[in-house]
Design a protein around this nucleic acid. Structure first.
Lengths: 194, 194
DNA sequence: TATTCGACCATAATACATTTTTAGTCGAAT
DNA sequence: ATTCGACTAAAAATGTATTATGGTCGAATA
């Protein structure tokens, strides 16, 4: 069971999440967050040491949720090819669904040094997730055309390509058709790795 | 032989190009461009109807040059696989070499509506270039796994992936190693299209 | 003791008035 | 047909007064 402390923290995070989605980071004040969850502003500072800390927690929650959704889908896939392909499709779909988080990160945080650090950390995590998928495939003998040592940079290139596809989808009026995307990726991936 | 008119225009464009590279679009004034090529400001307006027109011409020149370099290399390649692969490698290399142009486009122009239109037009051109490569390959029978009707969106996905790779290279300290990149792409492309 | 809050402060964001720059014009000179 | 100096209107930069906001602290509450 969660402690009282954690429950209140979650309340604050939810309120902040709600407002950040609506107005973005800069246009949401601590007073507003406090009002949204019916508490005094000073109370927030009992649970978080700064506004940035609150924001970090909200992002953490969103990212964690996104990753859970993706992982859940990837775990269903049997072969490595399927896992990698599913990773892209699901990630693509989820980002397009929750564009708010993505644009907050990009437009408001990206300017600062700290913002870039968040972004880098997120990117590094995703890259290493792909790397792990490939390494698992290598270990069980499914991947034959890539040397173990080459998996690291291969996953980096793969990740860069994936992000490019997702980003491209976000700036077009309509994102890529999931079916078509899956079709193409399913052709590419299997042949790359085996 | 070029007319006097064209020579002067080129002088102005070169001066502007030089200053834009150094200070960016907003921090370069028409007076400075005029001084750089030893002419009065009003003279510029005899050749270009606005600052935006000058900027457009500079970008045009840069892009044209980039495309000539890429095309030159692509034309050397014999098979479609090679052409597509070469396209990415050369484009990647050239953009990394001339990062200035890229960042001007991104950071200063991107904000405005017109800037977005430039960008879209450039992207559309590159996408259709890839499409043409694929269509040629289809017509000579090299491409067998893609239906003619699917070439359009396949080239779009391919382009998005390519741009992702190039962009990723620009934000890392060091760009992707060309050898490794070529290695991976050479593995991917042939299998996608035949 | 663990939470909550109202009152408070220093600084950052905003608004506004004033000055300076700068894109673009025009008529004259070459 | 080109070039330019002098000019203007509009935009950007600057300085300043005002407000809003992040964050603190000691007291109140439960």
């Amino acid at each position: 069971m969660r402690s009282k402390d954690e429950i209140v923290k979650d309340e604050i995070i939810s309120a902040a999440q709600h407002l950040f989605r609506k107005f973005g980071l800069k246009k949401t004040t601590m007073d507003e967050i406090a009002a949204e969850c019916g508490k005094g502003k000073s109370t927030l500072y009992h649970y978080f040491k700064s506004k940035e800390e609150v924001f970090k927690s909200v992002i953490e929650k969103e990212i964690t949720n996104l990753r859970r959704m993706v992982k859940q889908e990837v775990d269903k896939a049997i072969t490595v090819q399927d896992k990698v392909s599913t990773y892209l499709i699901k990630f693509h779909t989820e980002v397009l669904n929750k564009l708010n988080l993505y644009s907050i990160l990009k437009k408001e945080v990206n300017i600062s040094r700290k913002g870039q650090e968040y972004f880098d950390r997120i990117m590094e995590y995703e890259r290493s997730y792909i790397q792990r998928l490939l390494e698992d495939g290598y270990d069980i003998g499914e991947i034959k055309t890539i040397e173990k040592d080459d998996i690291e940079w291969t996953s980096e290139i793969l990740y860069a390509a994936f992000i490019g596809i997702v980003k491209y989808s976000t700036i077009r009026e309509k994102g890529f058709d999931t079916e078509k995307l899956k079709n193409t990726v399913d052709k590419l991936i299997p042949k790359l790795i085996c």
